[in-house]
């Protein structure tokens, strides 16, 4: 693939026993691209993310990050190469303070001084300054999401995967998240899984639709919204709400 490409999967497949969660997914992402993944529950989006970050191993197929094959890598190696992920459920260190959470993340790929600078910058950028001494486990759901986002941003990854970053957030918080995503996108490619169509409209150019473990269609947001097939399996249901 071209040097432009940051992430590529070839014929990616994952079976859990007889259940095919992901089937022959060929996915391409350019440097600093912002992509949204949508699809009904069980379409395989989270499974796809977990394979990209080596949390689960694909049954067959290949994953390439900046041209390097990472199909058989360990999660920490994938992270060291520059992929950061926010999982669907807030995945944080509950009994550590906000400051400690972010500093552990920043120390992963940087020396002491640089990490401290990144940590304080990220803390301020995400508006967590007032909470640094609090235990993350005591925070509200939305705030915990922010802490996790801060940790991912503090890694300074080249590719960021966000699994439902706006879930459980207020309208105001969602807007701030969208703003943050656009800002971080200046230096990193981002893939976002979301159900909130307003949110996707705010941030996305290209949208990939997953359905029953396969890529159904890949297009701009306007075309996706006009696509009959997509409306039927996904947006149609959303319109009924």
């Amino acid at each position: 693939m071209s040097a432009e490409c940051v992430l590529e999967t070839r014929g990616l497949e994952k079976r859990f026993g007889g259940v095919v969660a992901i089937s022959s997914v060929d996915f391409n992402l350019k440097q600093r691209e912002l992509r949204c993944l949508i699809g009904p529950n069980g379409a395989g989006k989270s499974t796809f993310f977990k394979m990209l970050t080596a949390q689960i191993k694909p049954t067959t197929g290949q994953i390439l990050f900046e041209g390097v094959e990472i199909t058989k890598a360990q999660p920490h190696q994938v992270s060291q190469l520059g992929i950061g992920i926010k999982n669907q459920v807030p995945d944080v260190f509950n009994n550590l303070t906000v400051r400690e959470n972010i500093s552990v993340a920043a120390r992963s790929r940087h020396g002491k001084a640089r990490a401290a600078a990144i940590a304080s910058e990220v803390t301020e950028r995400l508006g967590l300054t007032g909470l640094v001494g609090r235990l993350v486990g005591e925070l509200a759901h939305g705030q915990r999401q922010w802490v996790e986002l801060a940790m991912v941003v503090a890694l300074e990854p080249k590719l960021i995967l966000l699994d439902e970053p706006a879930a459980g957030m207020t309208a105001d918080e969602t807007n701030r998240t969208a703003e943050l995503i656009r800002e971080v996108n200046k230096t990193a490619a981002i893939v976002v899984v979301e159900h909130d169509m307003q949110f996707i409209k705010q941030i996305a150019h290209t949208v990939t639709v997953f359905h029953q473990g396969r890529v159904l269609v890949e297009d701009t947001m306007e075309n996706i919204q006009g696509n009959e097939l997509v409306r039927e399996i996904y947006l149609g249901k959303a319109d009924d709400d």
């Binding site: 920490h76 993340a105 790929r109």
Partner: peptide, 10 residues
């Protein structure tokens, strides 16, 4: 606290 998160941080 969270082994998976630590690994995902590298």
């Amino acid at each position: 606290e969270n082994e998976r998160r630590a690994e995902l941080l590298g």
